[in-house]
């Protein structure tokens, strides 16, 4: 699967960073003491996973390895296991790399609605295009609803994508209430019998209450048109984001009951470790990862591969 390679390439730099230093630091046979553990904490914190998640892993390491001779493979295993279990959570998420749609909970009755939100510049529109490609290539028909009626040329950006993908798009003039765009999108999908509606929204900072209320309204309006919708409410998170990601997840979830994350821009040197913290503290799972600018660069998230690629 290309996922593993791409993710690995994206995370290669992290891996080097994590490995070389620790290999130098921990020579087999020595006793693992606090100062050496602190060095380890450093590598964890550098991934942006935050103090709380790093502490959870450090506690595990302390309990299992502190004061004993260093067996590097065992320590790796502990870290990996802990990270994987943090990411898997209570096992209610499904990631099947063979089936690109496995993370999504789509409705049995047409159409399913996917609401996509996020802060400015997180990569919402690009992620939507990639997601639409994934859905189309697995035989679903898609309607895009260009709900970003605020930013200059955002509608044009999504329209260009829809032309490239050959799917329907619903647009309204700039400044229109985005909820009405979402409503018309759902209506059109119902009348033309399409499988999936993806609703784009304007980027907004989670602290602007009015805009968050607007998001709640979009969520509500969709639910009015199609009971039970939106079936998925995805938050797009920039992998370079630090601890503010937690605040983003919390506030967006309050507004739209997030069901999952798309971790975008994972192809840089950033690791998106804050996803671990979000999973740990709020239980929101990562569903997809964006690993490049191409239309095919959206992959099903896999905790095993994510962690393995980090420490392989």
């Amino acid at each position: 699967m290309a996922f593993f390679e791409k993710l690995k390439a994206g995370l290669a730099k992290t891996k080097q960073l994590l490995q070389t230093d620790i290999r130098d630091l921990l020579k087999a046979g020595e006793i693992l003491d606090e100062p050496k553990l602190t060095e380890f904490e450093k590598r964890l914190l550098r991934t942006d996973m935050g103090v709380a998640a790093a502490d959870a892993i450090m506690d595990e390491l302390r309990a299992k390895h502190l004061g004993r001779t260093v067996v590097l493979d065992d320590i790796w295993q502990t870290v990996k296991d802990k990270l994987k279990s943090l990411l898997r959570g209570d096992g209610n998420s499904n990631w099947d790399s063979e089936n690109p749609l496995s993370p999504l909970k789509l409705s049995s009755t047409k159409p399913s609605v996917i609401l996509v939100a996020g802060v400015n510049g997180a990569g919402k529109t690009t992620s939507i295009a990639k997601l639409a490609k994934l859905l189309i290539s697995t035989g679903n028909s898609v309607v895009l609803a260009a709900g970003d009626t605020f930013r200059a040329a955002a509608v044009e950006q999504l329209t260009l994508w829809s032309q490239r993908l050959g799917c329907d798009i619903v647009t309204k003039p700039s400044g229109t209430d985005p909820a009405s765009v979402a409503f018309v999108g759902c209506e059109q999908a119902l009348s033309t019998g399409k499988d999936v509606v993806i609703v784009d929204t304007a980027g907004r900072l989670q602290t602007s209450q009015n805009l968050m209320q607007e998001l709640t309204k979009i969520h509500r309006v969709i639910g009015k048109k199609i009971p039970g919708a939106p079936h998925e409410s995805l938050l797009v998170l920039d992998a370079t984001t630090g601890q503010n990601g937690l605040s983003q997840a919390r506030n967006f979830s309050d507004a739209t009951q997030c069901t999952g994350l798309i971790l975008a821009k994972l192809d840089g040197t950033a690791k998106g470790g804050v996803a671990v913290a979000i999973r740990q503290q709020m239980g929101i799972p990562v569903k997809y990862v964006g690993v490049g600018e191409g239309i095919d660069d959206l992959q099903v998230f896999s905790p095993d591969n994510f962690v393995d690629a980090l420490f392989a």
Binding site: L45, R46, T47, D48, T240, G242, G245, G268, T269, K271
Partner: peptide, 12 residues
């Protein structure tokens, strides 16, 4: 530079 950037800010 995005003010929300985490540890990676220094690299870029």
């Amino acid at each position: 530079c995005d003010a929300m950037t985490g540890q990676d800010a220094v690299n870029s």
